[in-house]
Design a protein around this nucleic acid. Structure first.
Length: 637
DNA sequence: ACCGCCTTAAGTAC
DNA sequence: GTACTTAAGGCGGTGC
């Protein structure tokens, strides 16, 4: 499992950004799977699960050719996992083999340590071991291994014993082990079995974290390309390093002179370049080479590489950017799971030629829906909408995918922003100021790399997506109105979508026409529940004031007709008063609304709706009847 | 433009 | 390490 998690070449690979500390959530969770944060429904955390010794076992490739690793005391697990050799096992052969094994073992150094340690380990790794007993086992184990830790860690079986000690030992015992390994962390990280120990020490021994990371200094470029060690560098960088340590690690991408002499207070490449403008060419060259190596070694999914890439793009000249672009355009889809990676992908789209953009779109097509729903990935979609001139291509490659899952995306925290962007552009209502700025920064470059007028481009995209949005509202209005977030998409569609919106209007009016007395908490009436009555009010207002719907929906008059049978109910319950107010202000419905309010409020009583309101305004606290007061003031005019 | 809630990061105590 | 506290930032809600 752990080995598989690093598979590259797929967007579904786990996101390498700072690991979410999800441990707390997991504790009480009933479902055993739930202790791993997932994205796209896939496990993100991989081997971080400390509760599973088995995870470690499977994490390591089983070597069936090495007798040292014969799991003879490992019981069933080992026997199952080690494929039998082709030889037909006979009693004699087995006995012979066993003797040979014992013979060899007794010649090994530390054999007198290994055998009892394995016995103890059998106990230690049990999940349910009484606390006192576990402490006792640890004590005996520590007596065995203290002073010898660095001699035995490179052995497959012993490394697992040490891992267990780190997991089950107390703070002092853990630090003893970590302390003995000081000076060996570099070699350990490159070792097939030792690297798991480094991960455990980073995790459990906060006192030694700095020491471990410092041993990587000077070797980052080498380690990031190493089959075993790259994952550790990434883990150290993204999960355990402080921001200063992260800067120190990334500085090694800049060139040899930064390997040992860290720039302490200058943290970003920008600051370093400002200090040493002369070195820029050299630094950029080294950065480029390092990144190139990472890409060739398939470590693009690592967040440390994303930062390097972003810094490169931010400071490279046009030629340098092109060079990088050629190298990674098809891998952009791999990196957009992290904040920095998404920014890199955005920059790639921005600087790419139409042909390159087409290639990038093609790689992203299978993952469009997933990308839309990602915290950072969705911004890449927005950038794509900004810069790709060929809107027919966009429709075929991207929008068609969105349309297929429109409902799902419209309800999604991040996905809805993608749709809202097509409808409402860079509205600060839906996009944070920071992200608006990020997009705006690229517009200067876009002037050179994109030909089409921005307004025309967005109109074309909107034209393509509008029918699907309208039909979604027409066919599933309930599904959207029950989700507050989806209401935003609903509103912006009604305001900005192009084409015939009447099917959607009718669907919304039908919902409003229901008897409000039948409203239940399960299926609340649209005019009685919070986000939706606001939506209807805004739609009534869209007939006569900003934000205007174009062309007009003539919503007010139609809504009034649906509401009028229940007007007494709405007023008595002090509901939907703001809608009534809007109807009264709306020139298309003002007259009819006035008439309605002067009629009797219910079949039995002779009192008019207006009188009812006057009574209410005296009886209730001012805050609750603000809208009613405004209605009365408007009527008095 | 403002406010309150929530999540996350960082720091501290046990 | 876990639990707890605090600080900061983002985001949704806010109906004259």
């Amino acid at each position: 499992m752990a080995v598989a998690k690093r598979k590259s070449g797929s967007i579904t690979a786990e996101k390498p950004q700072k690991k979410v500390k999800a441990a707390k959530e997991s504790k009480a969770a009933a479902a055993p799977v739930s202790n791993k944060k997932t994205i796209f429904g896939k496990v993100l955390e991989g081997e971080e699960d400390d509760d599973e010794d088995e995870g470690e076992l499977e994490a390591e490739p089983i070597r069936d050719d090495d007798e040292d690793n014969g799991m003879d005391i490992d019981g069933a697990a080992g026997a199952q996992n080690v494929p039998q050799k082709n030889k037909i096992p006979t009693k004699e052969a087995n006995a012979q083999k066993k003797a040979l094994r014992e013979e060899r073992r007794s010649h090994k150094p530390n054999s007198e340590l290994i055998v009892p340690a394995k016995k103890l380990w059998e106990k230690l790794r049990l999940k349910e071991l009484p606390k006192e007993e576990r402490q006792q086992v640890m004590k005996e184990m520590m007596a065995l291994i203290t002073g010898k830790v660095q001699d035995i860690i490179f052995k497959h079986d012993m490394s697992r014993i040490i891992q267990s000690c780190l997991k089950h030992g107390n703070e002092v015992q853990r630090n003893v082990i970590a302390g003995e390994l000081v000076g060996h962390y570099l070699t350990l990280s490159k070792s097939m079995y030792g690297r798991f120990i480094v991960i455990k020490i980073l995790h459990y021994c906060s006192k030694y974290r700095e020491a471990v990371i410092k041993e990587f200094y000077g070797k980052v470029r080498q380690l990031i390309k190493h089959k075993e060690a790259s994952a550790i560098i990434e883990d150290a960088y993204s999960t355990y390093a402080s921001s200063a340590q992260r800067a120190a690690l990334i500085q090694e991408f800049y060139g040899p002179e930064f390997r040992l002499f860290k720039v302490e207070d200058k943290k970003t490449l920008g600051e370093i370049l400002e200090q040493n403008p002369i070195k820029k060419d050299n630094i950029m060259k080294h950065l480029m080479e390092t990144l190139k190596g990472c890409m060739e070694k398939g470590t693009v999914a690592f967040s440390i590489v994303h930062r390097g890439l972003l810094e490169y793009f931010e400071h490279a000249d046009a030629k340098g950017i092109q060079e990088m672009l050629d190298m990674m355009k098809e891998q952009a889809v791999e990196i957009l799971h992290t904040k920095e990676g998404a920014q890199v992908a955005m920059l790639c789209l921005l600087h790419a030629s139409p042909k390159d953009r087409k290639a990038m779109l093609k790689t992203m097509k299978p993952f469009v829906v997933k990308i839309c729903k990602e915290e950072y990935g969705h911004m890449v979609m927005l950038r794509m909408f900004d810069v790709v001139d060929d809107t027919v291509l966009m429709s075929k490659a991207i929008l068609s995918e969105i349309i297929k899952e429109m409902e799902d995306i419209a309800k999604d925290k991040f996905g809805r922003r993608v749709i809202l962007y097509l409808l409402a552009g860079r509205s600060p209502k839906y996009i944070s100021p920071m992200n608006i700025e990020l997009l705006a920064k690229g517009d200067l470059v876009r002037a050179n790399t994109s030909k089409k007028d921005a307004a025309i481009r967005s109109a074309e995209l909107l034209g393509y997506i509008s029918p699907a949005l309208i039909s979604l509202i027409a066919t599933k209005p309930r599904s959207l109105t029950t989700e507050p977030l989806a209401c935003q998409v609903l509103l912006e569609t009604m305001l900005h979508a192009t084409g015939d919106k009447s099917p959607a209007v009718h669907a919304l009016l039908d919902l409003a026409a229901a008897d409000p007395a039948q409203s239940t908490s399960d299926a609340p009436h649209v005019l009685l529940s919070m986000p939706t009555d606001r939506l209807y009010k805004t739609l009534v207002q869209s007939d006569y004031k900003a934000p205007l719907a174009e062309p007009s929906l003539h919503f007010g008059k139609a809504l009034l007709m649906k509401m009028s049978p229940y007007i007494g109910f709405y007023v008595q319950k002090n509901h939907s008063a703001f809608i009534i107010l809007a109807l009264l202000e709306n020139p298309e419905s003002a007259k009819e609304t006035r008439e309605l309010l002067s009629k009797s409020s219910s079949s039995k009583g002779s009192i008019t709706v207006q009188k009812e309101m006057e009574k209410m305004i005296k009886a209730k606290p001012e805050k609750e009847v603000m809208a009613v007061r405004l209605i009365l003031e408007t009527l008095a005019k």
